[in-house]
Design a protein around this nucleic acid. Structure first.
Lengths: 195, 195
DNA sequence: GATATATTAGTTAGTGATAACTAACCAATA
DNA sequence: TATTGGTTAGTTATCACTAACTAATATATC
C-alpha cells in the first residue's frame, strides 16, 4: 500500500483515459508510453507488468471510494440523508471525472483476470454494505418504508443510478448528470418514503 | 438479413459461450475453430472476418429481442401486465441461456467498434421504447402512478432488473434468477402502483 | 570539499508468442 | 464440371516484455 510516485500516478491516469476513450483492447504499453512521451520500456521502470498497472487503476478507484465513505461516516446523518449524500457525491465525482465513470461502471472489462476481478468485487461489496446499512438505518428510523425489503430498495436505488450514469456515458456525456441525478433522486425519495 | 447456415449458427453460439466464459480477449478465430473441431481458416468459409462474427452475435440478440417484442404485442395486455410479462420473459430467457445474459448486459465489450456499438445501441433503444410506451399506457390507464415521470419509472424498473441480472451473473449464477426476479417484481409493483 | 560509487529513469534494439487473415491445394457433392 | 467446405503452410502486425547501455543525480567515503 505504498504511495504511488508522480510518474506512477501519471501512468494510471493515462491508462484510465485510454480505456475510457478507446476501450480496453487499446490499452497497450506502447500507447501509454506514446501518450506520456517516453519509450515503451521506460514504463517498466515504474510498473513490473501491465497487470500491475491495472491493479493500480483499481487501487485508485478504491482510494477514491474509501475517501467518500469516510467523509460520509464523519458527517453521520440519518439513513436517508446518508443515501442522498452518497448519490450526490457520486454524481459530482463522475461529472468531474467522466473517464472514471466509463471505466468504473464497466466491471466486465476486469473480470478476465482473477486478481482484478477479486479487487473490483471487493470495492462493489464495500459500496453495497455502506448503502445497505444506510437503508436499514433509515427503515428503523421510520424515514424509509419498511413494507419493502432493504434488498429490493437497494436494487432500485443503485440500479436506477447505475442506469442513469451508463446512459450518460453512452450518450457521450450529452446531458447534465448532476441535474438529472438530482431529479432522479427526488423520484427515489418519493418512492422510498413511508406511506 | 439472410438466414444463417447451421455452421454459422454454430460459430455464433460458440462465440457467445467463449465470450461469456473467458472474456472478449479470449475470443479468437483459433479458439472458435478449436471448440468446433475444424481448422482456423475453415472459419473464413463461413464469415469474411472476425468483425462479421461479432455482428452476427448481435444479430442473434436482435432476433431474440424482436421475437419477445412481437409476442408481447400480440398478447396486447394492459400496460402493467405488459411490463410484468417483459420482465418475466427476460428472466426466463436468461435462466435458460446464462451466457446470453453475461454478454448482453456487458455492452462495453462491443463499444470499441463503431458498427457494433451502433447495432447494440439500436437494440437498447428498441427495449427502451417498448417499456416506455408500456409505462405511459399504464399511467393513462391509472394502473401506474402518475406523480412520477415515466422516465424515472423506467430507470427504476430497468435499472433494478439489470442490477439483479448482473449480480446473478457475477455470482456465477449462484441463485435462482426467476425466483429473485419474481420477488423483485412484487416490490416494483407495490412501488409503481398509484397511491 | 572533492571524489568514487550507486541508484534512478531513461534509451535502442530485439525476442518469442500470438493475433487476423491469405494462398494454394483437395475431396466430396450438386 | 462447378461449388462447398475443408486442409497445411504461410504472412504481416502487434503484443508484453527483456538485454544492454547511458546520462544525471544522490549518497557515501576519504
Amino acid at each position: 500500500m505504498k504511495e504511488p510516485t508522480p510518474r506512477q500516478k501519471e501512468i494510471v491516469n493515462v491508462a484510465i483515459r485510454l480505456i475510457a476513450g478507446k476501450g480496453m483492447p487499446y490499452l497497450t504499453i506502447k500507447h501509454i508510453a506514446e501518450e506520456i512521451g517516453i519509450s515503451e520500456p521506460a514504463i517498466y521502470r515504474h510498473f513490473d507488468s501491465k497487470h500491475d498497472i491495472l491493479m493500480a487503476v483499481l487501487g485508485h478507484f478504491e482510494t477514491v471510494s474509501l475517501r467518500i465513505r469516510d467523509q460520509l461516516q464523519r458527517q453521520n446523518g440519518n439513513g436517508l440523508e446518508q443515501i442522498r449524500r452518497f448519490m450526490f457525491d457520486r454524481y459530482a465525482l463522475f461529472s468531474d471525472n467522466p473517464d472514471l465513470a466509463k471505466v468504473l461502471f464497466a466491471e466486465e472489462m476486469f473480470m478476465n483476470d482473477e486478481q482484478l476481478a477479486k479487487k473490483i468485487l471487493g470495492i462493489m461489496h464495500q459500496h453495497r454494505d455502506l448503502l445497505f446499512n444506510a437503508i436499514q438505518k433509515g427503515q428503523k428510523e421510520k424515514e424509509i418504508r419498511s413494507d419493502i425489503d432493504a434488498d429490493h430498495l437497494f436494487h432500485f436505488i443503485v440500479g436506477s443510478m447505475r442506469l442513469l450514469v451508463n446512459r450518460w456515458s453512452f450518450s457521450g456525456f450529452a446531458f447534465d448528470l448532476k441535474h438529472e441525478g438530482s431529479t432522479l433522486w427526488q423520484a427515489v425519495e418519493i418512492m422510498i418514503k413511508p406511506d
